[in-house]
């Protein structure tokens, strides 16, 4: 049986598994006997590129089939400061798993700026989880946060840009009808604040993100990287979601009460 290596960002962990990505996502969301259930976001990792950083012999010993022949679902290799030690180029595809176990695979591509929004909203996942409003575009934002010469920084970061609809241009009066964020007035204040103080490029909207990401709020896509290098995983267009990835999209739109 093949062995796979996954980097989970919710929560941060490096895990080996004998399940291929789709089955692994399904297992994380609905298949565990602990009956823990819920959304999962993870990358597949190229083991060849992390040999120097993690004791891979550990998983070779532990990640073996069960006595009845079933594949081993998960062996944790690391749970602390994982991203910091992962080389960026070791990350392969990204997998977004819904509450009920539907898995969407996203391949990395070159990031090209689609439009020039004045304001942005970012949800960080790893290693910290604030939600940040910013006047910087995603790449500028990544560079700012991963600039370790600054006191408020992290070595590497995984984050996604979230939709702001009209607020991206009109924070004062923009329509917020389709924005499902809590405390929307505070978000508006943060964005107005960014407009008023151009020298302050970021404002914290939520200090600590709890719960699941509403996939429908993803804009552009997911970013992972540091000051020098980054990977971009584009979120599919609405048309593709409705046509190519319908089952996943329908599941992603289903409301669950946490």
């Amino acid at each position: 049986m093949d062995r796979y290596l996954y980097f989970s960002i919710t929560p941060e962990a490096l895990i080996s598994s004998m399940l291929p990505p789709e089955d692994y996502g399904n297992y994380l969301a609905v298949g565990t006997k602990k009956r823990t259930r819920g959304q999962a976001i993870f990358f597949e990792v190229d083991p060849a590129k992390i040999k120097k950083h993690f004791p891979l012999q550990y998983i070779e010993e532990r990640c073996v089939p069960h006595s009845d022949g079933r594949p081993k679902a998960s062996v944790y290799l690391s749970i602390y400061r994982v991203l910091e030690h992962l080389p960026i180029d070791s990350l392969k595809n990204l997998y977004l798993t819904t509450d009920d176990g539907r898995v969407l695979e996203i391949e990395k591509t070159e990031y090209t700026k689609h439009h020039e929004d004045k304001l942005h909203l970012y949800q960080e996942f790893c290693p910290v989880t604030p939600r940040i409003a910013s006047s910087l575009n995603p790449i500028e934002f990544l560079k700012l946060i991963t600039d370790i010469t600054k006191p408020i920084s992290v070595p590497k970061l995984v984050f996604v840009e979230l939709q702001l609809d009209e607020l991206a241009h009109e924070p004062q009066n923009g329509n917020v009808d389709n924005l499902p964020y809590p405390n929307i007035d505070h978000l508006r204040d943060c964005l107005i604040g960014l407009r008023k103080k151009p020298d302050t490029p970021t404002k914290t909207v939520i200090r600590f993100f709890q719960g699941d990401l509403l996939f429908r709020t993803c804009k552009n896509g997911f970013f992972v990287g540091d000051k020098n290098k980054y990977l971009y995983y584009p979120f599919p267009s609405l048309e593709d979601l409705q046509n190519k990835y319908y089952s996943w999209w329908r599941s992603a739109l289903t409301l669950g009460f946490q």
Partner: peptide
């Protein structure tokens, strides 16, 4: 349909 926060918002949960 995308009003008052749309799907997944607190308003949605209240109307559910």
């Amino acid at each position: 349909e995308g009003n008052l926060g749309g799907k997944g918002s607190d308003a949605h949960k209240a109307t559910v």
